[in-house]
Simulated scan of single mutants.
Amino acid sequence: MYPVTITSARVGLREFTPDDVDALTAIYGDPEVTEHMSFEPRSREQVEATITAVTGAAQAVPRTEYSLAAVRPDGDLIAFARLAVDTQHPGQSSGQIGFALRADQWGQGLGGDVVRLLLRLGFDELGLYRVWGARSPLNEASARVMGRLGMVEEGRIRGHLKVRGRWRDSVVHSILAPEWRRPGADDSRPSSGA
C-alpha cells in the first residue's frame, strides 16, 4: 500500500519526504527523546540516511515497512511512527509498532493518537491479526499509552537489546484484532484516508 495517508482530528500519518530531514533530526537528535530507544541520538547525516532508507522501503512490493511521519493538521512533523509486518513467518499476520514523539509534544495525548493510527493501519487497512510493541522497562509513558489503547502487557524479554554498551530488557505489549474490533473499544475512530 503506497502512499499511506491516515488521519484523525489531531494527527495524521503520511509518507516521509527528503524535506523532513530537519524536522526528524529534532526528534532523533534529542537525547531526551532517545533515552529509552534502542539507539543513541542521531546526527543530521544519520537522519538523512534513515529517510532515504524508509522512502526506499516504502516502494517495496510487497511492502513490509511502514515508517511514516506523524504530523499535526498544520503539517508540523511531531513524531516518527513505524509498523513492521512480520515476514519471518509466512502466512502469519503480525506486525510490530514503534514511535518517537518530539519532546515538546509530550503530555498532550498525542502519543496515543499516533499509536491509535498505527493500530488502524495494521488492523483496518492491512488486516493483521496481532500488533505488538516493545518498550524499555523504564519507559512508563509508553506503557500508559499502550495500556490505554487496550494493548496487554505480555512479559519481559531479558537481555533483549544492547544499548549504550549495556544489555537491556524489553517489555512486550500486544493487542489482537478481536480486541481492537470489540464494540465500544474505540468509537472515536474516524474513517481512514489510506
Rank of each mutant, 00 (worst) to 15 (best):
L110T: 00
S93Y: 07
E125H: 15
V54T: 04
D86C: 10
G133L: 10
G122E: 14
V21A: 12
A57Q: 14
D113S: 11
G159S: 15
A84Q: 13
A9F: 07
D113N: 10
W106T: 02
L101K: 06
F39P: 07
V71G: 10
G127W: 00
Q108E: 04
V71T: 15
R148V: 05
W180L: 11
L83N: 03
A194F: 10
R164G: 11
R156C: 07
M37V: 08
R182D: 01
A194G: 06
P3W: 07
N139T: 03
G155A: 02
A79Q: 01
Y2N: 14
G193R: 14
F39A: 13
R144A: 14
R10F: 03
R189H: 02
E32A: 14
E35L: 11
W180I: 02
R120P: 00
Q108C: 08
A194H: 01
P62C: 10
D113Y: 12
G184E: 05
A70D: 00
I157T: 02
P31G: 01
A100V: 09
Q96G: 11
R102M: 06
P183D: 02
I27M: 08
E153R: 13
T25P: 02
R63T: 06
K162Q: 09
W132Q: 13
A57S: 12
S43E: 02
T34H: 00
Q92W: 09
R44P: 07
F16H: 09
R148Y: 01
I51N: 05
D124E: 05
V33Q: 04
R189E: 06
R189I: 15
E40D: 12
H160C: 13
V114S: 04
R82V: 15
H160A: 14
A79I: 09
V21C: 08
V47E: 06
E15S: 01
T50C: 03
R148C: 00
G159D: 15
W167Y: 09
Y129W: 13
L68Y: 06
R158S: 09
L161K: 11
R144P: 12
R168G: 01
G165M: 08
D22G: 03
L126H: 12
R130Y: 10
A81R: 11
P18L: 13
G147S: 02
R144W: 00
Y66T: 10
Q46R: 09
T55K: 13
A60R: 15
L77T: 11
T64H: 05
D186E: 08
G75W: 07
S93A: 15
T7P: 03
N139E: 04
E140M: 13
L24K: 08
